[in-house]
Design a protein around this nucleic acid. Structure first.
Lengths: 189, 189
DNA sequence: GAAAAACATTGACAAATGATAAAAAATCAC
DNA sequence: GTGATTTTTTATCATTTGTCAATGTTTTTC
């Protein structure tokens, strides 16, 4: 599993074997079952996770008790409740495994220390902030300019794995519509 | 005008007068008329702007030719096309003054240099990325869990200036609805 | 492997929002 | 200031999406 993370760093950053070793050794393996919750609303988020296998989502619960999924991480992606992790303040989101998953987790304390010590950790931090920004930016755009049908079609196009592997319920909560509406969109295709 | 930026840095960052002076002196004053365009789709974004007076928005044009407003900056806020500015790649957005405005602009070249030289510029960069992230994050949440009416009511609550100062057309494009729908929402209040 | 629970689909209807058009009001340009 | 342009409001109708309820299907649990 750590090999996978090493490869990821090698492919995505300008770095050295020493730095990679140092950073990777701060990650610990964690196996989670489907539906297992990693972080809950009200907690301070202590970990960031790298998905080696499986999938993990970040969601929150709105005033009507409905779940809304903000982000879904598949293999080779990081996931955390960004603001809570960075600022060490309570989060309003939940993080949950959507399939049986193999993860690598790093603690805030270790990560903070490594940011001071290695440029790789610093670069990772900046890149992840940027990725998170771009992801949300894109989602805002999609809500501003697309209908539910268009958002669904687009998701099939750019990230079919989400639709293939996750339940209708989760996909609907990610698209911002009800399950029933999603069921209908799939038919009227 | 530079006084305003100095005050802003003093209030929001741990820094020294020397650093503030160095960073602020890289900004140049720019007066813009209402509706003046600062950056257009297809261009590489060379500047980030600090709004001293007035208001500026970032918007894009969807496939139907409709404008959709992603972000509105009022006094004492920064605005730029984040990804284009950071990565120096072409943007798909426009940046436009929504009122007669007094701005301070800094070039990418100068900013990049200052990030290496002063911790204030580095801190500003990180903080702006974080603010941008939180802003978009919040917008995603609002689309996932609120109706158009709820988004409007919420905007009145947290940022009434946007509704008071900007045209219906722009507010509607910011909420992701048509002008006509916005007109109706205001009545059925 | 059977019972229970969770999830997905479908139908009927309601509510929200969009599209189009026309009139009223506000703003702009000269 | 006045005519031209743009913006806002209002009305009607169409479309999209939500709600509720019933049923079928899949998954989980013991």
């Amino acid at each position: 599993m750590t090999e996978q993370l090493k490869t990821y760093f090698g492919n995505n950053f300008q770095t050295t074997p020493t730095e990679v070793e140092k950073l990777v050794s701060a990650f610990k393996e964690k196996s989670v079952k489907k539906n297992e919750t990693l972080i809950s609303k009200g907690e301070v988020c202590r970990y960031a996770y790298f998905v080696c296998k499986g999938s993990v989502r970040a969601y929150f619960i709105d005033d009507d008790g409905q779940e809304a999924t903000r982000y879904i991480a598949l293999e080779n992606q990081f996931i955390t409740t960004v603001h809570s992790f960075i600022a060490q303040t309570p989060t309003n989101e939940f993080i949950q495994a959507t399939e049986q998953s193999e993860l690598l987790q790093i603690s805030y304390t270790d990560f903070k220390k490594l940011i001071e010590e290695t440029t790789l950790a610093k670069d990772l931090y900046n890149k992840q902030l940027e990725v998170a920004y771009v992801t949300n930016h894109w989602r805002v755009e999609s809500f501003l300019k697309m209908s539910a049908k268009q958002r669904y079609d687009f998701l099939i196009e750019v990230n079919p794995a989400i639709i293939q592997r996750l339940s209708n319920k989760i996909v609907a909560s990610y698209l911002g519509i009800t399950q029933e509406s999603l069921s209908r969109l799939k038919v009227q295709k």
